[in-house]
């Protein structure tokens, strides 16, 4: 087979509809907005787990926040009928991710678990993925971050510390998924059990608004939640096929 044929063969393979369905897992997170209280525990848990730098007041003032999950807040109405809703916003691990197509060096790609992976080593920092992402969940290392000693002793050895000029984002705590798979393998199981792996944010969520699992497993909690009539995708019109499913907030007197 010559080069062109080989290229076309792999092209067809990747272009085949349902390519991702052949994978073992399709990790999914559900966010129940009716449970979310906006407390921010997920934000700090993520910061602790994923070595997310402390940015500092000056740089935050310039808009360089790094937290991979953030709580967006939306007001409706005016006093005294003002209402506030929170929505945790994190990488949606889209199946049709705009960020993946634009990276000129393929530093972000779709891995075998349907995760939108970011290879820090390969990133050259064009930041185009952040432009293409409609959810604004990619964060750029505008400079080398610094931890005042001995805060660096807390850094998680399972997660790298990113250098300047590199894009980063939520990984669904891929290091935990990796570990759970290894455990499953050690136990002689082929699959990770439902609930065996939880990203830091899901693990800590005090109101249990976040759940995580494999949507390919029809008995998993997430698969059931996805069938809830409240389930929806944020910015569904962009057709990014996200792996994060939100459950609508219930408004007792919404119309």
């Amino acid at each position: 087979m010559n080069f062109i044929d080989r290229f076309m063969a792999s092209w067809r393979k990747y272009r085949k509809p349902g390519y991702y369905e052949e994978f073992d897992y399709a990790w999914t997170m559900t966010v129940d907005l009716d449970r979310c209280t906006g407390c921010g525990a997920c934000v700090t848990a993520c910061q602790a787990e994923n070595n997310i730098p402390i940015v500092g007041e000056k740089e935050l003032g310039r808009g360089r926040e790094m937290q991979w999950i953030r709580i967006e807040r939306y007001w409706e109405g005016e006093y005294p009928n003002a209402k506030l809703s929170f929505i945790p916003m994190l990488c949606q691990q889209c199946d049709a991710a705009p960020c993946e197509t634009v990276c000129p060096v393929s530093a972000t790609y779709h891995n075998q678990d349907g995760l939108n992976a970011q290879i820090y080593n390969r990133c050259i920092g064009t930041r185009s993925c952040a432009v293409y992402c409609p959810y604004e969940v990619r964060y750029f290392n505008y400079y080398d971050h610094h931890w005042d000693a001995p805060l660096e002793q807390q850094l998680n050895p399972d997660v790298t510390v990113r250098e300047k000029g590199v894009m980063e984002k939520c990984t669904f705590c891929v290091q935990r998924i990796r570990q759970a798979k290894d455990h499953a393998k050690d136990d002689g199981r082929r699959r990770v059990k439902d609930g065996e792996v939880q990203p830091a944010c899901v693990q800590t969520c005090p109101s249990e608004a976040l759940t995580f699992g494999d949507r390919k497993d029809a008995n998993s909690v997430v698969a059931k939640k996805m069938n809830d009539p409240r389930a929806y995708h944020v910015l569904e019109e962009t057709n990014t096929l996200p792996s994060v499913v939100y459950l609508k907030k219930v408004r007792a007197n919404a119309d």
């Binding site: 991702y20 369905e21 199946d95 949507r215 929806y232 569904e236 096929l241 792996s243 499913v245």
Partner: peptide
């Protein structure tokens, strides 16, 4: 909800 777009197998 229209989540049919997610491939679930």
């Amino acid at each position: 909800a229209n989540l049919n777009s997610i491939p679930i197998v």
